[in-house]
Amino acid sequence: MDKVRIGIVGIGNMGKGHTNYLSKNEVKGGELTAIVDTDPARLDWVRENYGDRFQLFDSLEAFFASKAFDAVLICTPHYDHPTVAIAAFKHGYHVLVEKPAGVYTKQVREMNEAAAKSGKAFGIMYNQRTNPLYQKLRELITSGELGEIRRTNWIITNWYRSQSYYDSGGWRATWAGEGGGVLINQDPHQLDLWQWTIDMMPKRVRAFCHFGKYRNIEVEDDVTAYVEYENGATGLFVTTTGEAPGTNRFEITGDRGKIVIEDGKLTFWRLTVPEPQFNAEYKGGFGQPECWKCEIPVPKSEGSHKEITQNFVDHILKGTKLLAPGEEGIKGLTLSNAMHLSAWTDNWVDLPINEELYYSHLQDRIANSKFNKVTRSLENMDVSGTH
């Protein structure tokens, strides 16, 4: 096998983006050969822009039966990610799925189980894992350079969205259409990076979600969450789509200093002596460890979808380790589900979460959603990604 033939499921915003770079042969060893969408207008768009370069399908059944590809890139609405992935695995295809992995962990766990049984490659489009800022942060933490983690704090409020944005599609910001708000739509990358860079998940979560606080929507648009880790560390995650100007600042404190990512820069305030050692040895009363401010040089890059696709293709062809294994999509989703559940029950939520309880609460909200769940399909939704 000297190349991987790729079929795209869903040709909305993200599907078009992936089509663009794949059609230019910018992924070595990868070739786009097929596209499926149930909206005729979107298939017409493909024909107008790419002629007859790809096989086009208007049903998943015909698409999967064609064997015109080796791997699928899933760019459907959030709820459909696990459903399409499971079907693809059953048909013997490798799978690369857009974020989020799904809407609730119960369905994502089923997807992960199907992937394990299939023996096929499984990746998720966590392109921010290719961002040198977060790769360097993970390196500094996992190598022990920062010491034991004591606190994490991410303020990510630069997701401003106007009411007209939400009004542009009846499915937007609804429980039946998207399955959540800022946590499920805008924040999947940050929730993934929050746990990936420090290489640990919280043990429990207490969150306060405001639903329709700034906009006329039914899902959350303002969230403050507090978490506790097994080692005693604590964390805070603050996000909203209703503030301008917003902030994007990720701060991690360890017993050897602190690291801050903000404005595209990584700064390490490094203690010359670990804090526990200084505390044990220092007898002068007022005082603190000597600290060096280190600006860590990092290449300029915002993280590329193309890099994740290249890594996925290399994994299939060469056995290269996946940077974003699909199975890990459940971790960030667990955090958002836990925040929702904490707000809904007005209580702490222990991890792993009670998946049945979350599902029950979600179904109640879907039943009362202004967006008719029955009409949710590829025809009337702008396929997934960051909308």
Rank of each mutant, 00 (worst) to 15 (best):
H94N: 10
M125T: 08
M125K: 07
I124R: 12
D80R: 10
D80E: 09
V108C: 08
N131Y: 08
A101M: 00
K120Q: 10
A85T: 06
F89Q: 02
Y126V: 06
R109G: 03
Q128K: 15
I155D: 07
V97I: 15
H94W: 01
A87K: 11
G119T: 06
T152V: 15
H78G: 07
L96F: 11
F89N: 02
M111F: 02
V103R: 11
T157A: 06
A115V: 05
T130A: 13
C75T: 07
A101D: 05
Q128S: 09
K90G: 05
A114P: 02
M125R: 06
R109M: 11
L146D: 13
E110P: 00
I156M: 08
E98Q: 14
T83S: 01
H91V: 00
T105I: 11
E139G: 11
E145N: 12
I141Y: 14
Y126F: 13
E148C: 10
F122W: 10
R138W: 05
Q107K: 15
N127P: 01
G147D: 13
L137Q: 02
R151K: 15
G119N: 03
I149M: 14
H78F: 06
Q128G: 10
V84L: 00
R150G: 15
L96E: 11
V84W: 01
R129G: 03
L137K: 07
K106I: 09
L137V: 06
I141M: 11
Q107I: 04
V108A: 10
E148A: 15
H94E: 05
L140N: 04
A114E: 07
N112M: 04
Y134C: 05
A115Y: 01
T130N: 13
G144F: 03
S118E: 03
G123D: 07
F89S: 04
Q107H: 13
V84I: 14
K90I: 00
R129L: 11
Y160Q: 06
T142A: 09
V97M: 15
R129M: 08
M111W: 02
I86M: 01
Q128Y: 06
N112E: 04
A88E: 00
V95S: 02
A116G: 03
G92P: 02
T142W: 01
H78Q: 01
E148W: 10
Y93N: 05
S162T: 14
N127R: 15
A101Q: 06
N127V: 03
E113C: 02
R129K: 14
N153P: 00
P77N: 05
N158F: 06
